[in-house]
Design a protein around this nucleic acid. Structure first.
Length: 497
RNA sequence: UCCUCGGUAGCUCAAUGGCAGAGCAUGCGGCUGUUAACCGCAGGGUUGCUGGUUCGAGUCCAGCCCGGGGAGCCA
């Protein structure tokens, strides 16, 4: 018994593979079985004159996703996926799958999400999960290698901590409890015990967000470091992101290839990440350059639409007399063009909104999703925006000692419109100032008793940040939506499977 | 909560207010090297739901349900 990834070490040998039928093609006297074993795909060739009659009959009766063990000789063959194929001598059928719903054809999002438990077997989803795993492992290696202690923050919390997000409420033995929106406050306590810690756990937000960047349940990594100021915090965030991307590039090239990821942007990760202040970001958004960028974007979309419109009549004319194979190609292309039209129309509707949001941005306004996209479009690496208006940031964020209007917070924005993947900053270490902020935000002082203790007993400058795992996976994989970055996404209207 | 697009066969999609169709999948037959194989035949429909307009509604109108994208909010 071996696995498909190991086949290259067994050329000429007889091996047994255990797995599932990914696809099946039959000809007279020959069956091509694409086997999926979790480690990869391998074509198994069953020739009638090479096997017992019973084996050949069994092979002909296989269906997509039936479970089998296949024995045969490993043969190098360039025609095959992965460069090696199996010339079969024996076959054991464990179970015949009837009417597997996900056929080797395109499907819609709704159907695939209903069948998420099966969709995970498809090659692209398989590749995403392998990269997600690589990212998780890289994060642990990064922090463990630098003396951080992993800690688990509670998932039930007794209060709506920051008073900003909408939280899921549960009944905790007749008390109200909320599902955590962040482990940060608990992380700060552990950082005062261990110096450097990180949490790695689920986070819940009851926001009714219906976008490609939002889940109601997602995984967040939150390092917290004693004796670290904001620049040191940014150094850690940048080093961590560079480490993650470098490891994925080195260890998961096959998976990135399956996804068709453009690697050039990922390779830019070796460059330093630009650090710009919120004030500079606002200046840039309201600048002539942003206006021109939007005009260019609009013109590009118009040109693209015109080109596609010009392509359509020729395709439709050819369709009538086309042979079947070409017909399918043309129909696919027409579908592609129509889908793209819808995206372009949506951009046309959005561009004026984006323009208004960016050009009319005033110091003190928060940056929206489109603003982040317009900013990151001007760079080819992640960027860090820091020094936000203190009025729009959480009560615990430390303010610039020289300018009370500015909070020492930082967001890391991924390129290509993926938006915020990290949010963090330096924490207020002064007891008096923290009390003042709690009162300003009209938060219940009594529930912060333990948190305030951290400022009474050995308070030091400290910082940390939260990394959104799914957004990071989406960016590195080049996916349009975070729902494909987690095995079973939880989002508005989606609780099953 | 608001804006916007959509819901037709198991799946992906067609159908000027006028006989509901194609490809894939499934079943049967054919083909010895296929790459979403191909060729032939067959079965497969409460056009999301409710009501309305009309000689006639998948198509028009109203309300509701479900889904995609976006705003707000955020990782």
């Amino acid at each position: 018994m071996t696995t498909i990834t190991e086949l290259k070490h067994h050329a000429g040998a007889t091996v047994t593979l255990n797995g599932w039928v990914y696809n099946l093609r039959t000809g007279k006297g020959i069956v091509f079985l694409i086997l999926r074993d979790g480690s990869g795909l391998c074509q198994c060739v069953i020739a009638q004159d090479q096997v017992d009659e019973a084996v050949f009959l069994a092979a002909e009766g296989l269906t997509q996703e039936s479970a089998v063990s296949v024995t045969g000789t490993v043969v190098a063959d360039e025609r095959s996926v992965g460069g090696h194929e199996l010339h079969v001598t024996g076959l054991t059928v464990h179970q015949i799958a009837v009417d597997y719903p996900i056929t080797p054809k395109e499907h819609g999002v709704e159907f695939l999400m209903e069948n998420r438990h099966l969709w995970l077997r498809s090659q692209r989803q398989w590749a995403v999960m392998r990269i997600r795993n690589e990212i998780i492992w890289a994060i642990h290696r990064f922090f463990q290698g630098r003396g951080f202690v992993q800690m688990d923050a509670p998932i039930f919390t007794g209060n709506a901590v920051e008073g900003t997000s909408t939280l899921f409420e549960t009944d905790y033995f007749d008390q109200k409890a909320y599902l955590t929106q962040s482990g940060q406050l608990y992380g700060e306590a552990m950082a005062m015990a261990h110096g450097k810690i990180y949490t790695f756990g689920p986070t819940f937000r009851a926001e009714k967000s219906k976008t490609r960047r939002h889940l109601t349940e997602f995984w967040m990594i939150e390092p917290e470091m004693a004796f670290h100021d904001l620049p040191m915090n940014m150094d850690v965030a940048e080093d961590m992101m560079r480490f993650i991307v470098t490891e994925v590039l080195a260890n998961r090239p096959e998976e990135l290839k399956i996804l068709g990821r453009d690697l050039s942007v990922l390779r830019n990760i070796t460059k330093p990440f630009p650090r710009i202040t919120y004030t500079e970001a606002v200046e840039r958004l309201t600048s002539e350059a942003t206006d021109r960028l939007l005009t260019t974007m609009e013109e590009e979309r118009k040109a693209e639409k015109a080109a596609l419109e010009a392509e359509l009549p020729a395709l439709e004319k050819e369709l009538g007399g086309a042979k079947k194979f070409r017909k399918v190609q043309i129909e696919n292309r027409i579908r592609e063009i129509r889908a793209r039209f819808e995206e372009i129309e949506e951009d046309f509707r959005n561009i004026p909104v984006w323009r208004k949001s960016a050009l009319e941005k005033k110091w003190g306004d928060d940056l929206g999703g489109s603003d982040e996209t317009l900013l990151t479009m001007q760079y080819d690496t992640p960027i860090m925006v820091w020094g936000y208006p203190s009025a729009i940031k959480a009560f615990y964020m430390k303010r610039d000692p020289d300018n009370d209007a500015i909070a020492l917070g930082v967001d890391m924005l991924a390129p290509e419109g993926y938006g915020e993947i990290i949010g963090g900053g330096q924490r207020e270490e002064s007891l008096d100032l923290l009390l003042e902020r709690i009162r300003e935000h009209e938060l219940p002082e009594e529930v912060f008793g333990w948190y305030l203790d951290l400022r009474k007993y050995g308070s030091v400058p400290h910082s940390g940040f939260g990394l959104g795992l799914e957004r990071t996976v989406a960016w590195i994989c080049g996916l349009k939506h975070v729902r494909e970055t987690i095995p079973f996404p939880r989002m508005l209207g989606r609780l099953h499977p």
